[in-house]
């Protein structure tokens, strides 16, 4: 017999899906939001994203090559690129580059590689990086450039009128002081949908994020369970608060469109590694994130609660996985 026969166990075919494909589809789904950010905040948004991606990839490459001495290229799987983009999306567009680099080293070096690299991290690296920076550099991380200062101008924060508050910060201040006039400064829902408002560079354009969600769902990169359960919970919870006292609590639509809620619900909470494995668990996780976000936003010290809510629930994911199991075939006797 001239032919060599390969022998292996079944199945002998594969769907062709790969880690890279999933990662790059998420990157593709983030492109609309990046473009919107470019339109709102100018070239600074692109530069910050590029620095963050480069710093993340380089950190992973160095650790893998020189500390772990792993001959395989782990950078090629695309996950470091994704972390870099998401980290940048959680920062003001004109933040100092060295802060971005510190965030990237923390996200990849401490949160991801220390735990064993891809698939082993407990917390979402980009969000943990953001939380680290927010605590370490509170002023830099919360000085938001105003949108519409020209596509190719680098925003200088010292210029009067260059920076402003985010809608969430405005609301927090308004409800705290009880001054209804402050609420009038809130951007219109249309501006929030199109990204014409202050905020982190990736979170401002709700329409682009929703387009990203549609891309991810159509390409079957994620399922609907986590994003939909987060958004619905926020709408219902903040809607009830708003109905009870419209003077003290925000309109649920504003809650959904403002801050990092959509960015978090679509791209951060759905991170494969740190979210639960079965549909039931994912819904529980989504509801908890939505509720925690509203609680932190309404009663906490920070105006924004999404990133902390997701990080808290990341810690609960192993517990959710052990308590919520998919329904086994034949578990419930069928109706007669």
């Amino acid at each position: 017999m001239a032919n060599i026969l390969n022998v292996s166990l079944s199945p002998h075919v594969h769907s062709g899906d790969s880690v890279q494909k999933n990662m790059y589809w998420v990157v593709a789904a983030l492109v609309p939001a990046l473009l919107c950010s470019f339109i709102s905040f100018g070239v600074g948004a692109i530069i910050t994203t590029a620095i963050s991606v480069a710093a993340c990839v380089l950190t992973e490459w160095v650790i893998n090559k020189f500390m772990l001495k792993n001959p395989k290229c782990t950078v090629c799987d695309g996950s470091a690129i994704l972390t870099g983009i998401l980290l940048a999306f959680n920062m003001p567009s004109n933040i100092a580059p060295w802060i971005v680099v510190i965030g990237a080293i923390f996200a990849i070096g401490v949160v991801k590689m220390t735990f064993g690299g891809l698939g082993c991290n407990l917390f979402n690296p980009a969000l943990a990086g953001r939380a680290f920076l927010l605590i370490s550099f509170p002023v830099d991380m919360t000085t938001w450039p105003n949108p519409g200062q020209g596509l190719f101008t680098l925003v200088d924060n010292s210029v009067d009128g260059a920076t402003g508050a985010t809608p969430l910060a405005l609301m927090k201040a308004a409800f705290k002081t009880g001054d209804p006039k402050m609420l009038e400064q809130l951007p219109s829902l249309q501006d929030m949908l199109l990204g014409n408002t202050g905020g982190c560079l990736g979170e401002v354009c709700a329409a682009a994020l929703i387009l990203g969600l549609i891309i991810l769902l159509v390409k079957k990169v994620i399922t609907w369970h986590i994003p939909v359960s987060i958004i619905l919970t926020v709408v219902v919870f903040s809607g009830l608060l708003n109905l009870a006292n419209p003077q003290a609590y925000a309109n649920p639509l504003v809650e959904v469109l403002s801050g990092g809620l959509l960015l978090g619900a679509v791209f951060m909470a759905t991170d494969y590694v740190t979210s639960p494995m079965c549909a039931k668990g994912q819904i529980v996780y989504g509801i908890a994130i939505g509720a925690l976000t509203v609680i932190i936003r309404t009663y906490g010290a920070y105006p924004e609660g999404m990133s902390f809510a997701i990080l808290i629930m990341n810690a609960f994911t192993p517990l959710i996985n052990s308590k919520f199991k998919p329904k086994r075939f034949g578990e419930v006797p069928a109706k007669k």
Binding site: N6, S8, V19, G119, C120, Y272, V273, S275, M277, C278
Partner: peptide, 25 residues
């Protein structure tokens, strides 16, 4: 056609859980 791809770490994407016809993990 029949060659298997290089195994990579589990990224916990849960696609195997949704694919399992017996509801296993």
């Amino acid at each position: 056609e029949a060659r298997r791809g290089e195994p990579q770490p589990c990224i916990r994407c849960a696609k195997c859980v949704s694919a399992c016809p017996m509801g296993l993990e």
